[in-house]
Amino acid sequence: MASPRWFYQISGRWLPWLSLLTFVSIIIGVIWGLGFAPQDAKQGNSFRIIYIHVPASFLALVGYYIMAISGAIAIIWKIKLADVVMKSAAPIGASLTFIALLTGAVWGKPTWGTYWIWDARITSMLILFFLYLGVIVLQKAYSAQGLSNKAAALLALVGTINIPIIYKSVDWWYTLHQPATIKFTEAPSMHPDMFQPLLIMIIGFYLFYVTALIVSMRAEIIFRERNTSWVKELALNLKDKRPI
């Protein structure tokens, strides 16, 4: 169990369903958020950007923990699959962080009056983006794969301190960014008509994260095991069919 081969086979069975579920929930969330959620009394329609901005930021932070923890598991217990998770999580996390920064900038212009400001929230989020890029680059830094992975995992672990800083930055310091709308301890400070599509989008982004991670891990597994007999067999079996 927990071998790359085992994961490849079992994930192949889940993948079509997960992809379908991801697609359906994001489509519903997007249509609901763009067309059916009421506009905000103060911000008008620019508020609709929240349906991308909040789920992307959320998964960018969660994804960092997933990457760092699997990096630690790969270092300590030398589990191959954990290493594959770390490697696949980095570009997905970087993309989600980029989406969070971009949608934030585009939302900032009509609400704050500027695309960018160096406040604690936005700066720490930019640092997160660079941490993800650092992990991606370090994985390719040394010709010895083991050394590269170790260096990348260490950077990922050192960077975990940034996650609580991002999350609490709006409470610890004076920032232009407002405090969190969705809190762990109390009800969201948002009307239910607006919150329901947001919940759908957060679920959709979670599903997207899992699906994207699995798809990326499967490609990485095939690459790493390309010289093994089971991958060769799989490739030759796919020869007559259209490989997906």
Partner: peptide, 24 residues
Amino acid sequence: YVWTAYSVSLIIMAFIFVMPLFRK
């Protein structure tokens, strides 16, 4: 602003989903 945010984000997401399929 709204359409830029949505379209660019969804394109990036489609991209990170499809890239590994081509790689494989």
